[in-house]
């Protein structure tokens, strides 16, 4: 059983991670620990009690984000889901985290190396589910002869382009407004 002190420590850690998530989503990864401490309503020093470095804070946050996406996507994925259903599930998950995800894909190259590896592993969860759907479609001879990584990277490239250039397409959420169009036309590109 956890002590009161442990429970309090975990709660504070969670508050800091939530504040960091919101701050990075709003301001980008250049947001300072001072800003995060203020948003979390904790002292600046408290952040470093829980996360020894800023890099460590970012990596822990990305790991938590990856676990949430993993769980969310797994719950939405059904055993025999169609390609349309899976792609819609992927977009729906991203809509829940849209502002943060947009910052993440725009700034990933300037984040620490370990964060880049966490990012790859977040995408591996998506590629795992998409691969299962594509394998089933291939058995039905329904997909063009395209290597799996090109199928996956084309999908990711498409949604990342719309996300990073949101302003070109809508004043609101680009994934919400263009979801149906993106899914429909992506499938036209890869299906026989």
């Amino acid at each position: 059983m956890k002590t009161k002190r442990q429970i309090q420590k975990e709660a504070t850690r969670k508050i800091i991670l939530n504040a960091a998530y919101q701050m990075y989503a709003n301001e980008g990864f250049s947001a300072t620990t001072n800003q995060i401490a203020k948003a979390a309503n904790v002292s600046h020093g408290t952040i470093f009690v829980h996360f020894p470095t800023v890099d460590n804070l970012i990596i822990c946050l990305l790991e938590r984000f990856g676990s949430e996406i993993n769980e969310h996507l797994h719950l939405l994925s059904e055993k025999d889901e169609s390609l349309e259903t899976f792609l819609a599930a992927h977009i729906n998950v991203l809509i829940c985290y849209e502002d943060f995800y947009k910052r993440l894909i725009s700034e990933i190259n300037s984040l620490p190396q370990e964060a880049k590896y966490v990012f790859i592993n977040i995408q591996s969860v998506v590629s795992f589910h998409l691969n299962q759907v594509i394998e089933r479609e291939k058995e039905k001879m329904a997909i063009k002869e395209i290597p799996m990584h090109i199928i996956f990277n084309s999908w990711l490239g498409l949604i990342h382009y719309y996300l990073t250039n949101n302003y070109l397409f809508t004043a609101g959420s680009v994934l919400t407004d263009h979801k149906d169009e993106l899914i429909l036309n992506y499938i036209k590109l890869i299906r026989k």
């Binding site: 590896y117 790859i120 592993n121 995408q123 591996s124 590629s127 795992f128 998409l130 691969n131 290597p147 799996m148 990584h149 090109i150 996956f152 990277n153």
Partner: peptide, 17 residues
């Protein structure tokens, strides 16, 4: 192998990830 197949990564990068 799975990461290379589904994401097309360089082998050394896939191994590190």
């Amino acid at each position: 192998n799975f990461t290379i197949k589904t994401q097309g990564l360089d082998e050394a990068v896939a191994e590190k990830a």
